[in-house]
Measured scan of single mutants.
Amino acid sequence: EMEYEEITLERGNSGLGFSIAGGTDNPHIGDDPSIFITKIIPGGAAAQDGRLRVNDSILFVNEVDVREVTHSAAVEALKEAGSIVRLYVMRRKP
């Protein structure tokens, strides 16, 4: 069973403070093209906020749908998102 969360982060000097993997051209798990959080960087915006978790998958960055995009398109969406970034994420319920 999945749960969904909308997380708004303010981009810090060091960016959003997380790493991603995945994409249609580089699936992270099997042939699932989802964009997954692979690392939360200590002291970064995501770590300070505390809600984003490793293995969360990002569905939307602001209004941009990143469910079926290449890795570089997801990176671009995050880069272009401005200083306030709304992430709509999905994760397995614990």
Rank of each mutant, 00 (worst) to 15 (best):
D31F: 05
R91M: 13
N26F: 07
F60C: 12
A47M: 07
R92V: 07
A73F: 05
I20Q: 05
A77H: 04
M90S: 06
H71M: 13
K79Q: 02
F36E: 13
F36S: 11
G15A: 11
E1F: 01
K93H: 02
A81I: 14
P42K: 08
A45D: 05
G43I: 13
T38H: 05
V75Y: 06
V64G: 11
L59K: 15
E76I: 15
S57P: 10
R86N: 07
S57T: 08
G82Q: 13
E68P: 04
V85A: 13
S83F: 06
G22R: 06
V75E: 09
I7H: 02
A47G: 09
L78G: 01
D49Q: 02
Y88V: 02
R91A: 12
A45Y: 15
L16Q: 04
E3A: 06
V64M: 05
I58M: 07
S34Q: 14
L59Y: 09
I7N: 01
R67H: 15
N13G: 11
R92I: 09
T24E: 13
P27Y: 04
I29Q: 13
S14C: 04
V75H: 11
D56M: 12
A74S: 14
S83T: 07
V75S: 10
L9Y: 12
I29K: 09
I58D: 00
P33E: 12
E80R: 10
V61Q: 00
M2G: 01
E68Q: 05
E1L: 00
A81Y: 06
G44L: 07
V85W: 02
A81N: 12
R86T: 03
G30Y: 14
I41F: 07
G82N: 11
A47Q: 11
E3V: 10
A73D: 07
Q48W: 04
L52I: 12
V89T: 03
Y88T: 03
I58L: 08
I35C: 09
K93A: 03
P94Y: 02
V54N: 05
E6G: 04
G30E: 08
G43S: 14
S34A: 08
I37Y: 00
Q48Y: 05
A81T: 05
G44P: 01
V54T: 07
Y88C: 15
A73S: 10
A73Y: 10
F60A: 12
S72T: 14
